[in-house]
Design a protein around this nucleic acid. Structure first.
Length: 588
RNA sequence: GGACCUGUAGCUUAACUGGAUAGAGCACCGCACUACGGAUGCGGAGGUUCGGGGUUCGAAUCCCUGCAGGUUCACCA
């Protein structure tokens, strides 16, 4: 397509004896109500042409039809010149497409760029919820899209395994746990720990209420409540490396990790390397100290260390508390630098984190820049909107969260109910069926979340089940499965002699759409946007269904060509869905 | 209060980064298989693109302003 655009550009230059800039030669897709394959916007040219838009379009149209053999005809509507290409042109395009099973996907590591994508990064005091699902699906998909753009991508996360939050669960378990373990309760480890986090909060509130009744103010009560003091002492003990505390901490975290592993497996996400805050915060402290020695940072009278970013339009920001303990920013600096050490080729670091931390990352990137790290200017905060419930924001402590495991289970049940109702799988084994229900249910959920622009906050209503019809994952999967049925019936196709065929409108449209896929993958990579992929696949599927509905395949002289078209379309659906982290089934 | 983000049909959303009559899905109404999977296709109805100004051949998109919602400005994470 690019070569053709160049030819047209040259022709326009010759016609008006003028050297037009690329930005003046604007192409867009032809709207489907007009005939044509590509549209030139002529408005930017009329000044030079010294003619009306219609006249200008006509002159160019006649010029390109005469001098470029791939262009068959044209029409001008207002200031828009629609150009139609020959069947031969499109058939050539198709023969290139069909020869490449990895159409649109660049070879691994062909770009010589190494990119780290961080996502997930949970705290270890509670199970994953709906918000984490958006994070995980988004991060995983963006990583896959960047891989498809030829980059060397590493998926990483940093697990917030230390801090007051896990101490709360530890204290509550010690006091109220009665030796409960995942084994003797049958609970997933993360769920068990989450229960004690909630338990802590409940008992803590009771203590506060009692203290207030005894005459303390609310602030005093919050500070003096024995449970909180207990938790803070535990944090201090942990930092001192107290054996018993560390053992308990390790034991409880290990429960959480085994729970997370199950959830990650169900979600279908993975990581190349895990970082733990407990292993990076010390490095962060050292770097802050070094930055202080080199006068990038300054120390206040109380001993706390800050950076002054007022000249950069930001504020002063705390980097180390006066008692020398680390804050979130401290460990984030440490983690970033450690990653650069682990992956010296790293050009870019992408953080998949909610938009509530927009400011945090602005500051972090600025700090890394000031410390002289080159990769800082390529750091990117993949910021996404919160997932709200009809009742408002989710709050773990108050139990108003949609649990990730539960939600996925619900999706599987819905998929099963839908499938059984349609009854197309009677001959499949029970195991195949279960795999399929998970496949379809997960597709519905992932697609539902990923088709929306990451920046937008989304409302999720658990009462209304996620759709399976229309612009949804299962609809796309269904189209794929139907194509596979055609292929099973046909066996091999043979494209010999297809150059002679006339292309139906529906066939042309399909080839045209497939031709766009490589550009779509690039665009999605440049914009870090799975939504672009999702919308493209949906368009493709709609065009295929129109083709399928209006054109007979078997028993026609173009049977092999039509099977080949279907096959290619299926391939693109499959690669596109893979970029979203969604599998497509052979039958459903 | 300062900063940032969002606002498109009843609901969920698209619009090639300034281009044609703002395009889909759900829900609603009406159609369509003597072919291959009906989890389908076609049509209808539904819009002051939050309001008001401006920039130009042309604005959902850019600028100004107002409104609504959200986030953030902590020795929390």
């Amino acid at each position: 397509m690019t070569e053709l655009i160049k030819l047209i550009h040259n022709t326009v230059n010759q016609l008006f004896d003028f050297n037009f800039q690329d930005s003046q030669i604007q192409f867009q897709q032809t709207r489907k109500e007009f005939e044509g394959d590509i549209t030139l916007v002529v408005f930017p040219l009329v000044k030079v042409a010294k003619k009306s838009p219609e006249e200008t379009g006509k002159v160019i149209g006649e010029g390109v039809v005469k001098s470029i053999e791939e262009i068959e005809s044209f029409n001008v509507i207002k200031g828009f010149l629609n150009l139609k290409f020959t069947d031969t042109f499109w058939k050539k395009k198709f023969s290139i497409q069909i020869q490449n099973p990895n159409w649109g996907i660049e070879n691994p590591n062909s770009s010589n760029r190494t990119i780290l994508v961080e996502y997930s990064s949970p705290n270890t005091n509670k199970p994953l919820h709906l918000g984490h699902l958006r994070n995980n699906f988004l991060g995983y998909s963006v990583a896959e899209i960047l891989k498809a753009n030829g980059h060397d991508v590493k998926k990483v996360q940093v697990i917030n395994d230390r801090g007051i939050h896990i101490c709360k669960s530890m204290v509550a378990w010690q006091l109220f746990g009665n030796g409960e373990t995942p084994e003797n309760t049958g609970l997933k480890g993360d769920k068990l720990i989450g229960n004690y986090y909630v338990k802590f909060d409940k008992e803590y509130k009771n203590e506060i209420a009692n203290l207030i009744e005894e005459g303390l103010t609310e602030d005093e009560a919050k500070k003096q409540a024995p449970l909180m003091q207990n938790a803070q002492q535990m944090l201090v003990k942990w930092e001192q490396g107290d054996g018993e505390t560390v053992d308990l901490w390790k034991k409880m975290n290990s429960w959480v990790y085994s729970g997370f592993d199950v959830t990650y497996k169900t979600m279908g996400v993975d990581f190349d390397k895990l970082y733990y805050e407990s292993e990076t915060f010390l490095l962060g402290k050292n770097i802050v100290q070094k930055g202080l020695d080199e006068n990038f940072f300054f120390k206040k009278e109380d001993g706390s260390i800050w950076i002054d970013l007022k000249n950069d339009g930001l504020d002063e920001k705390l980097l180390l508390r006066s008692d020398g303990t680390a804050v979130y920013m401290t460990q984030d600096i440490g983690t970033a630098v450690l990653r650069k050490q682990d992956f010296p080729a790293m050009d870019q670091l992408i953080y998949t984190v909610g938009n509530e931390q927009d400011y945090h990352f602005k500051v972090l990137f600025k700090i890394l820049e000031k410390l002289g790290y080159d990769f800082a200017q390529n750091c990117f905060h993949l910021s996404y909107g919160m997932v709200d419930l009809p009742s408002g924001k989710m709050k773990s402590r108050e139990g108003t969260v949609v649990d990730a495991d539960d939600l996925m289970e619900d999706m599987f049940s819905t998929a099963q109910a839908t499938s059984e109702e349609l009854g197309k799988l009677e001959d499949a084994s029970e195991e195949e069926k279960q795999t399929l229900y998970k496949n379809v249910g997960l597709a519905a959920l992932k697609y539902f979340i990923l088709k929306v622009d990451p920046k937008k906050r989304m409302l999720f209503n658990p009462e209304e089940s996620v759709d399976f019809n229309g612009n949804t994952g299962p609809f796309i999967q269904y189209t794929y499965a139907r194509i596979q049925a055609l292929k099973r019936r046909k066996g091999n196709y043979d494209l010999k002699g297809f150059e002679g065929f006339y292309l139906e409108l529906e066939e042309r449209e399909l080839i045209k759409k497939i031709e766009q896929f490589p550009d779509i993958v690039k665009e999605a990579g440049a914009g870090y946007s799975p939504a672009i992929i999702a919308n493209y696949i949906y368009d493709l599927v709609k065009i295929y269904n129109q083709f399928y509905q209006s054109i007979q395949i078997f028993g026609t002289e173009k049977e092999d060509l039509r099977i080949a078209l279907s096959h290619k379309c299926g391939e693109v659906i499959k690669s596109g869905m893979k970029l979203l982290g969604i599998d497509v089934p052979e039958r459903m």
